[in-house]
C-alpha cells in the first residue's frame, strides 16, 4: 500500500513540475515582450495584446503596436516553437534509439536542410523558396540515411548511427563546396547565417505554414510516449514485450523529422538544444517519457526564449543563436557528464 501511494505522489510531483514550467514560460513570454532595445511598459503591452486579441481599438502608441505585434510577438513565438520542437525531437530520438547521446540531427536532417537552403540562396531564390528547399533537403537527407541500412540488409541501431555519420559527412563536404563557389559578399554570409540559426528575420508566413503539421507530429509522439519508454529498453527487449518496433520507430522518425525540418525552416539550424534540454528534463522529472516529453517541450521553449532575448539585447548587431546555445550547451553537457561520470563507460 505504501509503495502505491508513493508512486502516485511521484506522478503528482511530475505533473506539478510541468505546471510550474508552463507558468514560468507564460511569465517569461510576457517579460520578453516588454524588454528589448525599444522597451514597452507591461501595462501597454497587455493592453495592446488584449485589444488585438478581441479586435478592440485603443489609445496606445501605433509605434508600440507595430513593434509588438509585427516584430516581437512573431519572434518570441518562433523561439518558443523551435525550442520546444527541437527538444521534443531530441528526447524522442534518445528514447527510440536507446542512446542518450543522439541529437535530433543525427540522421542528417540539419546538414540536409542546410544544403537545401544553400542551393536556394546560390540561385538567389526568394525566402519562401529557401524555406521550402531547406525542408525538402532535410527530408531527403533522412531518407538517404534510412536507405543505407536497407541496402546493407541490416536493421541494427549501430548501422543507422553510422549511416547518419556517412550521410552527414558527405553533406558537410557538399555544403563546403557550395560555400566555396558562393559569392563571398552576399551569398556566403547568408548561408553562414543560416547555418548558425537566428530569429531576427522570422517570417510570419513560415510559422503559419509549418505550424499545423508540426502540432500534429508533436501530438502523435506525446500520445506514443509510453511506448517510447519500451523502445528505450533496446530493440529485442522491446519486441519481446510485444512492441512492433519497426512501426513505432518509423512513426517516431517521421514525426521527429517533420518537427526538426519545420523548425529549421523558421530559424535555420540551431545546435545543442535538442541534445541538452532532454537531459536537463530527466534531471527534473525523471526518464518516464510520459512526463519527460511535455517537460522537454516547456524547458526547450524557455531556454530558446531566454537565449534569443539575450542575443537581442546584448549584441550591437544581431548575433546568431547557435553561438550562445553552444557556449551554454557545451559546458552544461560537460557538467552533466561530470555528475553521471560513474554511469558513463
Amino acid at each position: 500500500m505504501l509503495g502505491k501511494r508513493a508512486s502516485v505522489d511521484n506522478r503528482q510531483k511530475s505533473a506539478l513540475i510541468n505546471s510550474v514550467l508552463f507558468v514560468l514560460l507564460a511569465i517569461l513570454v510576457m517579460v520578453c515582450l516588454c524588454v528589448g532595445k525599444y522597451s514597452i511598459s507591461p501595462a501597454e503591452c497587455i493592453k495592446i495584446l488584449w485589444g488585438n486579441l478581441f479586435n478592440i481599438s485603443g489609445d496606445w502608441d501605433v509605434m508600440d503596436e507595430n513593434m509588438l505585434m509585427g516584430v516581437r510577438l512573431p519572434r518570441i513565438m518562433a523561439a518558443v516553437i523551435v525550442g520546444a520542437a527541437l527538444s521534443l525531437s531530441g528526447a524522442v530520438y534518445q528514447g527510440i534509439f536507446n542512446n542518450p547521446l543522439v541529437s535530433p540531427d543525427f540522421l542528417g536532417v540539419s546538414s540536409g536542410a542546410c544544403i537545401g537552403a544553400a542551393v536556394a540562396i546560390l540561385f538567389a531564390m526568394p525566402s519562401i523558396l529557401i524555406q521550402i528547399s531547406a525542408f525538402a533537403g532535410g527530408i531527403v537527407a533522412v531518407l538517404l540515411t534510412l536507405l543505407i541500412p536497407r541496402i546493407m540488409k541490416s536493421g541494427s541501431n549501430i548501422m543507422l548511427v553510422l549511416s547518419g555519420i556517412i550521410v552527414g559527412g558527405a553533406m558537410t563536404s557538399i555544403l563546403g563546396f557550395i560555400k566555396y563557389i558562393a559569392d563571398p559578399e552576399t551569398q556566403l554570409a547568408a548561408i553562414t547565417y543560416w547555418q548558425l540559426g537566428s530569429f531576427a528575420y522570422v517570417d510570419n508566413k513560415a510559422i503559419v505554414a509549418v505550424l499545423p503539421l508540426s502540432v500534429v507530429a508533436a501530438i502523435v509522439m506525446v500520445a506514443m510516449s509510453w511506448w517510447i519508454n519500451i523502445l528505450s529498453l533496446g530493440e529485442s527487449e522491446a519486441r519481446s514485450l510485444g512492441a512492433d518496433v519497426r512501426l513505432l520507430r518509423g512513426t517516431c522518425i517521421v514525426c521527429s523529422t517533420i518537427l526538426t525540418a519545420a523548425s529549421i525552416c523558421i530559424s535555420g539550424t540551431i545546435g545543442w538544444v535538442g541534445l541538452v534540454v532532454p537531459h536537463f528534463g530527466r534531471m527534473l522529472v525523471g526518464s518516464d517519457n510520459r512526463v519527460l516529453l511535455p517537460a522537454s517541450c516547456l524547458i526547450g521553449g524557455i531556454f530558446m526564449l531566454l537565449v534569443d532575448t539575450v542575443t537581442r539585447i546584448i549584441g550591437p548587431a544581431e548575433m546568431p543563436v547557435s553561438i550562445l546555445t553552444g557556449l551554454i550547451g557545451a559546458p552544461f553537457f560537460a557538467w552533466l557528464l561530470y555528475r553521471q561520470r560513474r554511469n558513463v563507460r
Partner: peptide, 16 residues
C-alpha cells in the same frame, strides 16, 4: 539500461 525508470514503471512495461 540507458535510462532510469522506477521499478514500478519497469514492471508495468510487462503490460504492453
Amino acid at each position: 539500461p540507458s535510462f532510469d525508470y522506477s521499478v514500478m514503471e519497469f514492471v508495468m512495461m510487462g503490460r504492453a
